[in-house]
């Protein structure tokens, strides 16, 4: 009986916490990619069309999220973290005032955002090894729109 009580307690505890589950993007022999939302408000869906493509400069992704904030402007900041230290930092304006080059620019709170298309990395190719890529999208009010930590174990061969 006592164990079942404990179990209930543990279940309730998990339910109450804001940690989102870790999702698997790729799991291949030489490449594993997982992600976990670091936005306490929500989780999101993400996939890479062909995992092996991430060894190239550009690859196709799909991502979906329900917006909690307007994205008249949208800025991406990507950090490469190895052993807890930020090694590389890259930022880009995805939606700028007066120039919405992407379809979803200008969407408002509550709207469904779905992106399907290429992602071009700021660096030549993603490095080999075990590391974390932390990505964060912020809007015109510097509010976090989406946030994710990608755990990458990359041992692909580069040609």
């Amino acid at each position: 009986m006592k164990t079942s009580d404990l179990l209930i307690l543990v279940l309730l505890y998990i339910n109450a916490s804001t940690e989102w589950p870790t999702h698997t993007v790729c799991k291949e022999d030489n490449l594993e990619v997982y992600y976990k939302s670091c936005d306490p408000q929500q989780d999101f869906a993400f996939s890479i069309d062909r995992c092996s493509d991430i060894a190239t400069h550009t690859f196709n992704i799909r991502g979906a999220i329900v917006l909690r904030h307007n994205i008249k402007e949208l800025y991406a900041k990507v950090d490469l973290i190895i052993n807890g230290k930020t090694v590389l930092s890259y930022s880009e304006a995805l939606c700028e005032p007066g120039h919405s080059k992407l379809i979803f620019c200008g969407k408002k709170k509550g709207e469904h955002l779905y992106y399907e298309g290429p992602v071009t990395l700021g660096i030549k190719e993603i490095p080999q090894g075990d590391y974390i890529i932390s990505a964060k999208l912020t809007n015109e009010d510097h509010v976090t729109v989406a946030c994710a930590d990608f755990t990458v174990k990359n041992y692909l061969d580069y040609y």
């Binding site: 009986m1 079942s4 009580d5 209930i8 307690l9 309730l12 109450a16």
Partner: peptide, 17 residues
Amino acid sequence: LSLWMLMVVLQLVLVPS
């Protein structure tokens, strides 16, 4: 008794939440 205990525990957990 244990059912009662479970109820108490559940109440303790659920009511505050």
